[in-house]
Write a protein that binds this DNA or RNA. Structure first.
Lengths: 201, 201
DNA sequence: AAGATTAACTTTACAGTGTCAAAATTGAGT
DNA sequence: ACTCAATTTTGACACTGTAAAGTTAATCTT
């Protein structure tokens, strides 16, 4: 069952197709991703992918799952660097979020975007995405007021960094060229810093 | 120049094509939008749109511009309802942002998303988008500390509501069915309320 | 070991798509 | 009436996803 290793013709076509898809995505963006090109890159006929994925939506879903794995890695890397306070970890996860977006914008779009194909990207009932969310949850936990719903802080942090990342990637802040230091990223981090504190009367 | 009114064959084909595109978008999402279908709806041959738009990307750009007009209307409506405090206006604009997303998710994706076509959606040098941004700026202005860059508050508010709207629309909060009141929207508004206040020592 | 069975892949075909070049039509100006 | 330019159509091409049927190769059964 599952992904066989050395099967009939191609060693592991499913894996090869996903990788080809990721490559195409990172090289030419979403417009460059097609089933037939993936098949060609894997050295296989154009209809072969149909036996491994439910069409193009299926391949994109598989790519998105892979994307969430890489995404998790970016976030864990950002919070595992030496000793950090809870608040440094919170900032770290945000920086990891943005860094992932900068390095893998195509994947991010496939993971969260609609990509015009009416595909339902995996939600939190998906293993990879759930894992990424648990990382966020762990970092947010110290800032959840006792007895309150953790979803509140999580939604605040997630919305803020997700929105910033997408707007920044889209060039909406008019600073796609300027370094992050000069971007509104610090402004967003300043607001993050206020999560879990109390407002002055 | 510009959009002629009663020209040769079709009264105002450009206008008709944009409207057909919006209709297709709201009916069947991004996947349903195609140049040929727009042409058919406008009762015109499949190659006619090429003379009015720079291909599909051009049509999408035009639709996005139209979207920003509607978007602006949602926000102004939300802040023109009776007498409001500055803070109520700030909450109002956020609610308008979300309401627009709920009512016109297809347009929102076209306006900000990548839609897999490598299209550059209009940025702030575009009239319609600039107008929408100025509304945001006006509402944020009272919360900008004296002598500070207004972009800071704007980026905070925009990132927060933009991220929340997209995540909510994507079902990422696992509450696409539950009403807004039970969603994390109030959590995000609570963070919005803290903008422009000082953190307690 | 030999035949049957199933999985992996290919071939062929079809309906859509965007896009281009050339031809035909139409409206307005003179 | 003629000209002319803007507008639209026609026809073609390459590309896409997808479905059905055929082919090959590995595994299973006896």
């Amino acid at each position: 069952m599952s992904t066989a290793k050395t099967r009939h013709h191609h060693g592991d076509l499913k894996r090869a197709l996903i990788q080809a898809g990721i490559d195409l995505l990172e090289e030419g963006g979403l417009e460059a991703l097609s089933l037939r090109k993936c098949a060609a890159r894997a050295g296989v006929s154009h209809a072969a992918p149909a036996h491994h994925f439910a069409g193009l939506p299926g391949l994109i879903t598989a790519i998105a799952e892979e994307g969430f794995d890489i995404f998790s890695k970016y976030m864990t890397d950002a919070i595992h660097a030496g000793e950090q306070t809870d608040r440094e970890r919170l900032r770290g996860i945000c920086r990891g979020y943005l860094q992932f977006g900068l390095s893998h914008s195509g994947l991010l779009k496939v993971m969260f975007g609609e990509h015009g194909l009416g595909v339902h990207v995996p939600r939190k009932d998906n293993r990879e995405e759930a894992e990424a969310y648990l990382i966020l949850r762990g970092v947010c936990a110290p800032f959840v007021p006792e007895g309150e719903d953790p979803h509140i802080v999580e939604a605040q942090v997630w919305s803020l960094i997700h929105g910033f990342t997408l707007l920044y990637l889209g060039g909406e802040f008019g600073c796609a060229d300027t370094p992050i230091e000069d971007s509104p990223f610090e402004a967003v981090m300043a607001l993050i810093d206020r999560i879990g504190t109390q407002a002055k009367a």
